[in-house]
Design a protein around this nucleic acid. Structure first.
Lengths: 132, 132
DNA sequence: CTGAATCCCTGCCGATACTG
DNA sequence: CAGTATCGGCAGGGATTCAG
């Protein structure tokens, strides 16, 4: 076979969830897409892959990201078990955001997304191939 | 190292696109997410990973998917260079849909999405962890 | 400093009907 | 068989304002 990751059991072959006929939330692919769903989400995860961050550090790293969406994303990633909030006592309020072990395992996922998107210099096979 | 695909250069370390501060379409991750964007898209790709299909075979495999969305998805995947249309002459019209080589390379991407979503039995770390 | 609440606008997608 | 045209409901997300 051409591609088989090392000690990695492939889930697709005989798992019943590989045969769903609708985008059900039980499908593992949907679970991951739900965790990464929405604009800015992958960028927040990327930022946290580099180390834990405070709320304002995240805002500084992603200046065009609004408060609403940032807190939405952090809540969403918290629900998904990807991000952990560490609220420290004292004043002013200090909160640190960090990836959980599960969240760190998103590294290979983002890498796979990166690799596929990077392996085609714009204009080789894509949309504007013959256009100019 | 724990995980490193064989002869695969990692793009993240020093590529300037790894430092974008907004969801720009030039980011490889965004390119991939754009190709897979929208409901049903991954299921259409999965179906085509199993072999080429006609329009009605796709409808039969995904009964709850409407005509509008199916043709939207096929057009979107065509634009992304993932799917190829093979229109055969004669009557009645016969059209076959198949993945391009680029489209077949989505296999590992879907596998990565699957693996992450599958490795947590619901209720271990996720949302309803303590709920029941 | 760290967010939550509200408002409004836009784009997605589902249903239905129609065409080559 | 293989689609397109049109419409409407709903959720996503940006700007702004308010709160702990």
């Amino acid at each position: 076979m051409t591609h088989r990751t090392v000690g990695h059991q492939a889930g697709l072959p005989d798992d019943p969830r590989a045969h769903v006929t609708a985008p059900t939330p039980e499908c593992p692919v949907e679970i991951t897409l739900a965790a990464l769903h929405g604009r800015w989400t992958t960028l927040v995860v990327r930022e946290l892959l580099r180390g834990d961050r405070s709320y304002s550090e995240l805002r500084a790293a992603l200046p065009a990201l609004s408060d609403k969406v940032l807190s939405d994303r952090l809540a969403q990633l918290g629900e998904a078990g990807v991000v952990e909030r560490d609220r420290r006592p004292g004043w002013p309020p200090r909160v640190r955001y960090a990836l959980t072990p599960r969240g760190r395992r998103l590294g290979p996922v983002l890498q796979a997304l990166w690799d596929w998107g990077a392996d085609t210099p714009p204009g080789t096979t894509g949309p504007g191939a013959a256009v100019r």
